[in-house]
Structure formats: C-alpha cells, structure tokens
Design a protein around this nucleic acid. Structure first.
Lengths: 120, 120
DNA sequence: CGACCTACTTTGCGATGCAAAGCAGACCGT
DNA sequence: ACGGTCTGCTTTGCATCGCAAAGTAGGTCG
C-alpha cells in the first residue's frame, strides 16, 4: 500500500489554530472554559504557573483574537482584571479540542492497536 | 472556594514539550508512530501537507532532539531519506500524548460535564 | 512619609516557523 | 549527447512570537 490519494494531508491537522495551540494559552483557555463567570488575573496566573508579563501578553493576544474579554475594574481597593471566554472563544476552543482529540486518537491507535481494549 | 493551594499549576501542562507540541511536528510524529519501518521523505511530505523546506527543517529539529533518525540512501536511482522514530522518540512522544490526553479530558469536563453522554 | 506589596504593562531579545530560492542528480526528447 | 524539466532535498531570510527582566501605578503598613 503505497500511500493512497485519500491519505494526502491525513496528518496535517489544519484545525490546530496557532492562537490556541500554545502551551500557556491552552492552559488559560482550559482554565476559563470551566469558569463561565470568569477568573481574575492573579488566579489565572497561579493556575497556569505563569509570570505576570507572560500572562499579560497571552491575554492580550487572546483578546485581540476575540477569544476572551477582559473586564478591568476594581475590587477591594485593588485593580482587578476579570477574564472570561467569549461565546466565539468558547466555540473556537471546542473546535480546536475536537481536532486535538483526533490527534490523540490517531496517535494512540497508530502507536499500538487497541491499547486499553484487551485486544481480544 | 477561592483557589486551593493544590490547584497551583493545575493547568500549566509542563509536559507539553515544545519540540513535539507543534502542528507540523505533531503530524510528522503521528505519521511515524504508525510506521515502525519508517517513511520516505516524499510520503511524509504528502501526509502532512508540508512543503519540502518545511519538512526538511522540522526533520532536522526532530533529529537533533534525538526523536527521529534519518537514513539517507538511494532507491530506484533517486536519493531517498527514510525517517523513523527512535525508541527514545517513541517514548517521549507517548509521554507527550498522555499529557495531551489530560488536556482534552480537563477541557471536556470543564466545558460541559458529560457532553455526549445524553446527560441522563 | 518612605519602604514594600500587589497588579499589571512594556520592552528587548533570542528562538522559531515558514516560504522562496537554491542545488544536485536522474530522466526524456530529439 | 545535451538542454530542459522533474524529483528530492537544503539553505537562506524574514517576520513572528514566546519569554523574562525591567518598569509603572496605586495601595498598605510601620
């Protein structure tokens, strides 16, 4: 079997949006998808183990891409930025996840056919 | 519940090795993990929808990282580079996959508990 | 009222992905 | 036998991007 036409681009994974497909941003989005009410900057920072500068930069990128909304306000006499996933952001993240799931399944099945499924 | 200590770094995903966590390389590795005997350059190129230059560069990176081995020879009077996953490469790819799986599961369960499981 | 703390933003640089151009050998027509 | 074209791969150049270090603003505490 010498590489069928149908296999062209079989593993190109075009759906892996660069904006999302990034260690730090992936963590941020995963954090946010579980918190519909949003998360404050410092919490996000701790959850993702990011430095201030780093998180700031990534949030800016995500905001420009329309994936998250940043609501800058004050709470307890301190500046507080509340980060949430936008509806579009949620949608795009879920699409991305679907692709990621395909990657995992592709790889798992290629690595060892029926690995956890007691092969019998 | 104001962010327990245990949640520190919960979503940092340190295991997402930059060398592997890359659209193109991810495709290459997934292709290779299913072909223990290796794949020739042109096949890989088509499978991953990559340009020559691109694939060349990524393979060089993967080789330097010790994840793949490149066997340059000739077949049918043509140069032919055969690419395979090294044992170490396979191991590291599988580790990476485990983390990726955690990402998917984390996100899926955060996004909507039991999404495809007809919720009851 | 001055030293430190939290909450961010900005700057600078090194690394990297990507595409266009380059190179070498094989095949093909005449 | 030789000019052109094709395949197979490498190199170069640039524009982007992640990351860390430094910077800013305002609040709190001694």
């Amino acid at each position: 079997m010498a590489l069928a036409d149908a296999d062209e681009g079989r593993f190109s994974y075009e759906g892996l949006d660069r904006t999302i497909h990034e260690k730090a941003r992936l963590g941020v989005l995963t954090s946010l998808v579980g918190h519909p009410k949003g998360l404050p900057f410092p919490d996000l920072k701790r959850l993702c183990n990011l430095t201030d500068g780093n998180l700031s930069r990534h949030l800016a990128v995500l905001q420009e891409a329309g994936l998250v909304s940043l609501q800058k306000g004050h709470a307890h006499n301190r500046p507080q930025t509340l980060c949430r996933l936008t509806p579009a952001g949620r949608a795009r993240f879920l699409e991305y996840l679907a692709v990621l799931e395909r990657v995992v399944r592709d790889a798992a099945e290629a690595a060892g056919p029926a690995p956890d499924l007691k092969t019998a």
